[in-house]
Amino acid sequence: MDDNQRRQLLAIARQSIQHGLQHSRPLTIDPCDYDESLQHPGASFVTLMLNRQLRGCIGSLQAHRPLVIDVAENAFAAAFRDPRFAPLTAAEFPYLEYHISLLNPAKAMQFKDQADLLKQLRPQVDGLILEDGEHRGTFLPSVWESLPHPEQFLQHLKLKAGLPADYWSDTLKVSRYTVEDIE
């Protein structure tokens, strides 16, 4: 992404939230109005911060729609549909900080046990998707800032997926991905 494309994506996120405040729906995007590289399918997470505190974070783990639409939809969802927070208010809007993470395709990890998995983790680099049966959770690489130790990172990801922190099973699947951050 060049600087112009980054600016366009940040503007889309902001405009979609502003549109949501006025119309209760995300901004309608015509991908043809944007740079060709932003028209290709892309997976993104939009993280909103207010006073340096998380205010919402929603995203897509797989590319399934044009990136510009993915960012607009995820920004709206982060502001108004994150179940951890009340919908964003107009009074909060001017103070939001926007962080967009563009996800590279996830790759399944091979490991024989938890110790082997922990050795393979790359703090500050890896985002993880953890799955077992109906349980699924992900942490973006930015979560390493608050959970810097691999054991901690994995335990909290298990909790997020609805599993006990000490859970282990031979059916556990973990995939990793990297991101390009836009702020």
Rank of each mutant, 00 (worst) to 15 (best):
M1G: 05
D2E: 10
D2I: 07
N4L: 12
R6F: 05
R6Y: 07
R6C: 13
Q8K: 13
A11W: 08
A11I: 05
Q15C: 05
S16I: 04
I17G: 02
Q18K: 08
L21D: 09
H23D: 05
S24C: 10
S24V: 03
R25H: 15
P26A: 15
T28S: 15
P31G: 06
C32R: 12
D33N: 12
P41I: 05
A43N: 02
A43T: 01
S44D: 05
F45H: 10
F45E: 07
T47N: 07
L48Y: 06
M49A: 13
M49C: 05
Q53P: 04
G56K: 06
S60N: 13
P66K: 01
P66A: 01
P66W: 01
L67R: 01
I69Q: 11
I69W: 00
I69K: 01
D70W: 00
D70G: 00
V71C: 00
N74V: 00
F76R: 00
A79T: 03
F80R: 06
F80V: 07
D82E: 11
D82H: 09
R84E: 09
F85T: 08
P87E: 11
A91H: 10
E92L: 05
E92Y: 07
E92H: 06
F93L: 10
P94G: 11
P94Y: 11
P94S: 13
E97R: 12
H99Q: 14
I100C: 05
S101G: 11
N104Q: 15
P105T: 03
K107A: 13
A108P: 01
M109K: 02
Q110H: 13
K112P: 00
Q114W: 03
D116W: 03
D116T: 01
D116P: 00
K119A: 14
Q124H: 15
V125R: 15
V125F: 08
D126H: 12
E134S: 14
G137F: 10
T138W: 09
P141H: 13
V143M: 14
W144A: 10
E145D: 14
H149C: 06
P150V: 04
E151S: 10
Q152F: 03
L154W: 07
Q155C: 06
K160G: 06
A165P: 05
W168A: 07
K173R: 13
S175G: 04
